[in-house]
Design a protein around this nucleic acid. Structure first.
Length: 267
DNA sequence: CAAAGAGTAAGCGGAGAGGC
DNA sequence: GCCTCTCCGCTTACTCTTTG
């Protein structure tokens, strides 16, 4: 949230009833969190926007777009002015349309996912160690997979993972113990960390051989659902297999989509 | 009301740039 | 070639929202 929201709220705070003030801010004052914590909050608490000039290019050399906003403390009975034109109402978006906030579209459900959240870097293996385990006992290919993270996507010329990872999906401890070598590794490298995390996360502490978030909707959607013991309702083992998926990083400022194999674990 | 998902923040270490 | 500084983004922590 911008400091702009603070100055608007502070000005409103020290304003007398039926007083008014106007401030010049960057146009973010009517966008995102700054809008929610600033203008939206003020409208809810007795302010009226009676005049505004949104999205005016700054006259100087800086590449800045500004918005002038004038507020009144109390009920405003006269006409309001948006860009100098009379309107009945001015919303926190600095528009004369009815107020609305973005909502998630149901139609987009099941299209995009965040990857697994390990909470235990000890699950991660170097390639040599992973391949050795799989080579010695092919059953381990059910619990050891390539591990793709944002850095791989943004730095590897083929967007290939550089490391591998142990994944026991949603299995109970007894089933995971059947892969004793992998379980040994998790016990030695993950459990000590899990023992130290916030006791309020009891489930994460107790289920130390599992990821904090298994991203089961993701893996059911891209064709790895059969690894899980519990399935989302409506899921069918015979459908939904995808050879490739579109991936992009979550934290990086780089907005770059790339097709990658679906047969790996995503962070 | 709990669990999962979504969003935000920040510590930390790797890696590259630049100075000496 | 070494050291320091800076940038970058992974990883974790935490909060808020949605859903069943």
């Amino acid at each position: 949230m911008d400091l702009a929201a603070h100055f608007f709220r502070r000005a409103f705070d020290i304003l007398r009833r039926e007083g008014s003030f106007g401030l010049l801010a960057t146009n973010t004052v009517a966008e995102g969190d700054t809008r929610q914590g600033g203008l939206e909050w003020l409208l809810k608490h007795g302010a009226t926007i009676y005049a505004a000039w949104p999205n005016e290019p700054w006259p100087g050399s800086a590449a800045v777009v500004t918005s002038r906003v004038h507020l009144y403390k109390g009920d405003w009975c006269a006409t309001r002015s948006l860009n100098g034109h009379p309107v009945r109402y001015i919303s926190a978006y600095l528009s004369s349309q009815d107020d609305w906030s973005p909502a998630r579209l149901k139609s987009n459900e099941g299209k995009a996912f965040i990857g697994s959240f390990l909470n235990g870097i000890g699950f991660v293996l170097e390639e040599a160690e992973a391949k050795k385990l799989i080579h010695e006992d092919s059953r381990y290919s059910e619990v050891i997979f390539p591990y793709l993270i944002g850095q791989d996507i943004n730095t590897h010329p083929e967007q290939k993972p550089s490391r591998w990872v142990i994944n026991f999906w949603d299995w109970p401890e007894e089933r995971a113990r059947k892969y004793s070598e992998a379980m040994q590794i998790v016990l030695a490298r993950v459990k000590p960390h899990r023992d130290q995390i916030n006791p309020a996360k009891k489930k994460v502490r107790d289920n130390w051989w599992l990821y904090e978030a298994s991203a089961k909707e993701l893996y059911h959607t891209i064709g790895c659902g059969h690894y899980f013991e519990k399935h989302p309702k409506g899921w069918d083992v015979s459908v939904n297999s995808r050879k490739r998926v579109l991936a992009l990083t979550r934290v990086s400022k780089t907005l770059a989509f790339s097709f990658v194999s679906s047969e790996q674990i995503f962070f």
